[in-house]
Amino acid sequence: MAEQVALSRTQVCGILREELFQGDAFHQSDTHIFIIMGASGDLAKKKIYPTIWWLFRDGLLPENTFIVGYARSRLTVADIRKQSEPFFKATPEEKLKLEDFFARNSYVAGQYDDAASYQRLNSHMNALHLGSQANRLFYLALPPTVYEAVTKNIHESCMSQIGWNRIIVEKPFGRDLQSSDRLSNHISSLFREDQIYRIDHYLGKEMVQNLMVLRFANRIFGPIWNRDNIACVILTFKEPFGTEGRGGYFDEFGIIRDVMQNHLLQMLCLVAMEKPASTNSDDVRDEKVKVLKCISEVQANNVVLGQYVGNPDGEGEATKGYLDDPTVPRGSTTATFAAVVLYVENERWDGVPFILRCGKALNERKAEVRLQFHDVAGDIFHQQCKRNELVIRVQPNEAVYTKMMTKKPGMFFNPEESELDLTYGNRYKNVKLPDAYERLILDVFCGSQMHFVRSDELREAWRIFTPLLHQIELEKPKPIPYIYGSRGPTEADELMKRVGFQYEGTYKWVNP
């Protein structure tokens, strides 16, 4: 592979701008107003304001973009700056750019259920340069409990009458099928589907988006991507930290609602779906819905739930269990780990287990898709061969690698495990991989909904998990304890083995 010439960040961002501006969906010269509902909250200060700053800094926003914060707290732009700027990672050389960014910011205080507050917000936006005809993007960085009041008031008082209007809704989209349907029906009564952007930030990850290209742009994968060759698929999300004093919020939802029903299920769809007619948003989402419709409700015998306990040999936070978090209700049975087996009941995947695993306070930070292939028929190497695996590593250190057998150097035919490896950090030294939120917010500006969740996708996802969630809430089974920093409950490994996964433990990928 030829040595790549190092590029400056300015040059890299210039390439990104060229890609972005050559499309006809990006209205570079139009006025846009980006409204952050819930501007005083954690999500706004840690993710949304920093993301908008990065896009502005790199010249990736339309030229005439204004940012308006809205929340109940009586704040000023200076207050917003004070709480969000520490997350910007701005350099001293960017000081003038930073001043320009905050000059485009404003803030309006108001209630979430008060019509007069929204009329005041609308008047404020109209007073901005060309504000009355601007395109408006409303980001709901809010708890779902206020979605209905907020969307109703936005629709009645704050819509642009000339430009387009788009609304970005953060997960969780309800707690179960019934609450999700209620919320979807409410929002759909106010906005068209092409105006609604239900954001799952995992769909903005580079390697998640790469799944489609790997599958449908490489001839070698087509013939082997089926039940005849693939023994099982494992989708993993692991965090090495616990709730760390923020367990009160987590306890309301648990690990299945927080990660599995959305992030992991979306990745499953991209692995299992048929080739779409095109890369058009609805063509892709149509195929994802077909996959979900082929999955039956989760069966309790295919589920393992766990909850982390303190590690007596650990240090600091590792010595504390979930129930030691003062914000967690006493005696909570909320799971911090889950392993679930699903089956896609169609011709391509009949009988292939899709194993979804996620948890907190585990032994490493990792998100990946792992396809394990069947054993080689007619073994001539005296059971020395391990199964081939194709691994798409989402985070950290984005990579695609194939675990395969090669001859060990020497005189004899002794096979050993090795890999074919594409590590993004080595291959793409001159490429700026956008943060997931950067990519998705740019998608909203461009009107691309491919990486957002459609209402029928959402409904099918909740259909699969709601009976299990209701059973857990009714019966309150005690989750299996696992030690902070471990791989999780051993019962999860036993479940995976029972459905056909072979864990060798003899080879570990190392970032080159």
Rank of each mutant, 00 (worst) to 15 (best):
67 I>C: 10
165 N>D: 14
114 D>I: 13
212 M>Y: 09
147 Y>N: 06
112 Y>R: 02
174 G>K: 05
116 A>T: 13
216 F>G: 00
152 K>T: 07
232 C>Q: 13
221 F>Y: 14
191 F>R: 02
205 K>N: 04
172 P>E: 00
51 T>S: 10
170 E>T: 00
84 S>K: 08
167 I>V: 13
27 H>E: 15
89 K>E: 15
232 C>K: 03
248 G>S: 04
245 G>H: 12
145 T>D: 01
66 F>R: 08
196 I>H: 04
95 K>N: 05
113 D>H: 08
232 C>G: 14
70 Y>E: 04
84 S>H: 13
39 A>E: 00
155 H>T: 13
68 V>H: 01
28 Q>Y: 07
33 I>V: 10
57 R>Y: 04
43 L>R: 03
92 P>F: 14
11 Q>N: 15
74 R>H: 13
113 D>I: 11
83 Q>E: 12
216 F>C: 01
227 R>P: 03
225 W>C: 04
137 L>N: 09
68 V>N: 01
6 A>Q: 15
50 P>T: 04
143 P>Q: 02
126 N>M: 07
122 N>E: 09
65 T>W: 10
134 A>P: 13
21 F>I: 15
41 G>N: 02
196 I>L: 10
117 S>T: 11
241 F>T: 05
211 L>Y: 01
119 Q>S: 13
253 F>N: 08
201 H>G: 01
162 I>V: 09
226 N>A: 12
245 G>R: 05
88 F>Y: 07
173 F>S: 04
177 L>G: 10
193 E>G: 00
63 E>S: 11
117 S>H: 05
124 H>T: 15
179 S>L: 06
136 R>T: 09
53 W>L: 02
253 F>W: 04
176 D>H: 08
64 N>A: 07
173 F>C: 06
115 A>S: 14
31 T>D: 13
115 A>K: 15
72 R>S: 03
162 I>Q: 13
226 N>F: 06
75 L>Y: 15
250 F>Q: 00
48 I>N: 01
136 R>D: 03
250 F>R: 00
121 L>D: 05
162 I>K: 07
213 V>D: 10
164 W>V: 13
129 H>W: 08
94 E>H: 08
11 Q>K: 10
191 F>G: 01
133 Q>W: 07
121 L>W: 02
231 A>H: 04
226 N>S: 10
218 N>Q: 00
234 I>W: 04
97 K>M: 09
